[in-house]
Amino acid sequence: MNIFRILGDVSHLLAIIILLVKIHRSKSCAGISGKSQILFALVFTTRYLDLFTTFISLYNTVMKVIFLICAYITVYMIYVKFRKTFDSENDSFRLEFLLVPVTGLSFLENHSFTPLEILWTFSIYLESVAILPQLFMISKTGEAETITTHYLFFLGLYRALYIANWVWRYHTEKFYDQIAVVSGVVQTIFYCDFFYLYVTKVLKGKKLSLP
């Protein structure tokens, strides 16, 4: 465990909590892509099946359980509790365009051809593209609430810190996981355009709106 990994996990948790607090306080999930949140719930579910097979550490177990619970609460808030405020009209990204290639690729390129490994690989590939429905929604409506941009910033920061974590682990432990690293780099690239807008607009006190 290194500082980049801890900070990465903390910013991941912070992102998830920011989103929950936003929905809870405003009693609205306007501007949030329910599809992205369903994908994240699916990511955690398929990745953390090892909760039943492998014990890594108390930290690892507790964090996995928290992520799972938060992901399902978020989906519940969007599709049940505050359903009336959900902007399904603009959440129109076609999930099959992500799910079909990701499923295919997880069968083709994995560490071993076993159900748990294929599901783990599926979750890694899916996480790398899960934010696309949210980014698509923002580009479609041309704007995002400031709190939503904070959510995206911490989610992107988590990915960037994980890359630093992998560089660190490679140098200190000679450890690297090619599937996680390649997917993680791809995922981080998706946030670059958003990071640029966040720094040039949101941090200067302006609302994020696209021309």
């Binding site: 090892d50 890594i56 550490s57 996995k64 560490h111």
Partner: peptide
């Protein structure tokens, strides 16, 4: 190299 069954990252 890595232990296949043990994915220790979140």
């Amino acid at each position: 190299s890595m232990d296949l069954a043990k994915h220790d990252e979140l």
